[in-house]
Amino acid sequence: MTWTTVCELDAIVPGTGVCALVGDAQIAIFRPHADDTVYAIANIDPFAEASVLSRGLICEHQGELWVASPLKKQRFRLRDGLCLENRDYSVASYAVRVSEGHIEVQN
């Protein structure tokens, strides 16, 4: 397991996400606030099998943060990729950290 630097923290507009290519995996990285809290889950929406989750809206339900797929609005928990609508469609999550202003993902 190694840490891969993907981008600067400031490359992500607070409240949005971006998609990073790490190895051959598409990883969605979210920055919900203007601080250095970040989350990383798989970018592929498992319902449509399209690479879109980084483009979803970050939302709060049940006291936790999720991303709503921009295609059909199913929600995935940022901390572990759990799908709120159907846990069989949960996605992978990745360890992610901010180091000296850069975002690093473990894969």
């Binding site: 507009v13 607070p14 409240g15 949005t16 449509a48 399209a50 690479s51 879109v52 483009r55 979803g56 809206l57 970050i58 921009p70 295609l71």
Partner: peptide, 22 residues
Amino acid sequence: KPEHTPLQDTNDVFLGNMQKDG
């Protein structure tokens, strides 16, 4: 504007209608 971007559905963020394949 950066303060509005996080509010918009992807259609408004990227100013196009997202299709089924992204």
